[in-house]
Simulated scan of single mutants.
Amino acid sequence: MKAYVVENGLYTWKEMEEPSVHPNEVKVKLITAGMNHRDLMIKERVQSQEAFILGSDGAGIVEAIGENVTKFHVGDEVIINPGLNWYNKNEAPPEEFEIVGVPYNGTFAEKIVIHEDFVAEKPSHLSWEEAGVFSLAALTGYRALCTQGQAKKGETLFIPGVSGGVNTFIIQFAKAIGLRVITTSRTQAKLDMAIDLKYDRGLETEDDWVRELHDETVDLVIESIGGKTFNRSLEVLKKGGRIVTYGSSTDDIFSFNLRQFFYGQYHMIGSTMGSREEFIELLAFVKQHNIKPFIDTSFSFDELDRAFTYLEKQNQVGKIVVRFND
């Protein structure tokens, strides 16, 4: 079985043994997969001589089922829920929580075997390309906005970075709930490219956000950029407002004014991925509101080297699809 792996700190192609199906597991022949920023970072974290298959998102057709499987049958069209071993919507993931794609073999291969609890029926309103890039980003965005952010109709959300896969979901979710959405990008061109997300107001990264938003009352900020924008985002948040952080694409470690923070009575909340319970809620939500991933481009499975180069440049707006049936 052809796969794209991390081995000895390097990304490479490798012929892997096709996985066997054990009790309560299903084997899925993948039709599409999705790329995430996480895929770029794995080689910094894994220096093992053992080869691990990369990739967290995917969609395909059930090819075989193990003993005791009750939820699926051969031929079912499914998507992968990459948040393993996290069942209930609680304050933080359990210690056994893992993500598909290192240390569990991922979706950048022709087939994947996974426990039936972390597979779901492919939403009928999503194409194969849309289903393949859906789960990780959508689940991360849903928990950040709805569970941790407690977003409410009529509030104003400020979310730096219009083009990230998670943020393109958050903006759509927020508009479906009834929030006013203000977002940013490094260029006006990217803001224009994302206009179909129907955000209410767009700023460029280098704008003076405080001056530009003096007439706005920002109830909620969702941050994923980290050190380069965190303090600037906090400056536009109303006193007593909520700031949720689910990632850090720039500096993980930086300083902020603690006295200003507690005088402002701000609420800071961390978030990551989401539980199986939230995944089920998410699927119902996107079906109700006909929400789909915002797709930038696609590559064939054989073009994964090129796809990684494209992802590293961070010029995309939305998700990058990997196709297996070319």
Rank of each mutant, 00 (worst) to 15 (best):
K198T: 10
V236L: 03
Q188C: 11
E206K: 11
V218K: 08
D208L: 05
T217W: 12
E216S: 07
I225N: 07
V210A: 04
L213I: 07
T205F: 06
R201K: 11
V210W: 03
I182A: 14
G202R: 15
K190E: 10
D200P: 03
N231H: 02
V210H: 05
H214R: 13
R211C: 10
D200C: 04
V236D: 00
D196P: 04
S233I: 04
Q188F: 06
V221P: 11
L234W: 02
S233T: 06
Q188R: 12
I182T: 11
E204K: 13
V221W: 09
D208I: 05
S224N: 13
W209Y: 01
M193W: 12
A189T: 11
K198M: 13
I222Y: 00
K190Q: 12
T229L: 11
N231C: 03
Q188V: 08
V221K: 13
E206H: 09
E216K: 12
R211T: 15
G226A: 06
D207L: 01
E206W: 10
D219C: 14
G202Q: 14
T205V: 06
M193E: 15
R232V: 15
D192K: 15
H214M: 08
V210Y: 04
N231T: 02
R211K: 13
Y199F: 02
D192L: 10
M193D: 14
G227V: 07
F230K: 05
T187A: 09
V218I: 14
R232Q: 15
T184L: 01
D200V: 10
A189I: 09
W209P: 00
E223T: 02
L197R: 02
D219K: 12
I222G: 00
L197Q: 03
D192C: 09
L191V: 14
L197K: 01
V236F: 01
D219E: 13
F230W: 08
S185Y: 15
W209R: 01
R232W: 09
D200N: 05
I195G: 05
G226F: 02
T217D: 11
K190L: 14
D215G: 10
I225H: 03
S233Q: 10
T205D: 09
R232L: 08
F230S: 04
W209Q: 01
V181T: 13
L197T: 03
D192W: 06
V218R: 05
G202F: 15
E216I: 09
R201N: 09
D192P: 07
V181S: 05
M193C: 09
D215V: 05
T184I: 04
I225E: 07
A194S: 06
S224L: 07
V218D: 09
D200I: 09
T184F: 02
A194F: 12
I182K: 08
D196W: 08
V210E: 05
R201G: 07
D200F: 10
E223L: 00
I222E: 02
Y199K: 01
I182D: 10
S185R: 15
A189W: 08
L237V: 06
A194N: 04
V221Q: 12
G227T: 13
R211F: 13
S185M: 15
